[in-house]
Amino acid sequence: MKRILFVCIENACRSQMAEAFARRYGREAVAVYSAGSRPSGKIDPKTVEAMWEVGYDLTKHTSKSLREIPDIEYDAVITMGCGDECPMVKAKHREDWAIPDPKHWPIDQFREVRNRIEQKVQGLLESLKITSPL
């Protein structure tokens, strides 16, 4: 089983969407986590709406701190563009996707970010040799 961690500052939007897509497409082949360097404590309502539109319910997700995730070596740690804000986490592979935070954007632009994250997650899973049953 591969272990993946997605990190952004608030863990309220981008990393939550990435976690959701990795869970959807990776199924039992991955253990997926997301966290924030300064978590907001809540999931952005537009994130919940945007993921609901593609059939994923984020209402049970919570915004978490990096201190709340397992202290293990991850197969991949993906940051969403938070740069120096994200502390080092043990990882075999590390990548920054440089995805802008859409929290103040209109829903159409928000959806574009969601779709970009979905594509990047699918590419990540392929690179880790994880095939989707969907």
Rank of each mutant, 00 (worst) to 15 (best):
V48S: 05
H61Q: 09
K64Q: 12
I69N: 02
L66Q: 04
S37I: 05
T62R: 14
Y74Q: 12
E73H: 01
S37D: 10
Y74M: 11
E68T: 11
G36Y: 01
G83V: 05
L58F: 15
M80S: 01
E68C: 05
D57S: 05
K64I: 09
S63A: 12
K42E: 10
L66P: 05
V48R: 06
T59S: 04
V48G: 04
M51D: 11
M51L: 10
E68D: 15
E73S: 02
I43F: 15
T47L: 15
I78E: 04
G55C: 00
T47E: 12
I43E: 14
E49H: 11
P39M: 06
T59H: 01
L58R: 11
D57A: 01
E49F: 11
A50W: 08
T47D: 13
D44P: 09
A76L: 12
K64G: 10
S37F: 11
Y56G: 09
E68K: 04
S65Q: 03
I72F: 09
K64E: 11
K46P: 10
E53P: 02
P70K: 00
I72P: 06
D44H: 13
C82M: 04
P70V: 03
T47Y: 12
A76G: 11
H61D: 15
L58S: 12
E85A: 14
A76T: 09
D71K: 05
G81P: 00
S40Q: 02
D84K: 15
S40Y: 00
I69P: 03
H61M: 12
V54W: 15
I72E: 11
L66T: 05
V77I: 13
H61R: 06
A50I: 09
K42F: 12
C82H: 06
I69Y: 00
T79D: 00
C82F: 01
G36R: 03
K60A: 09
S34T: 01
V54S: 10
I69Q: 05
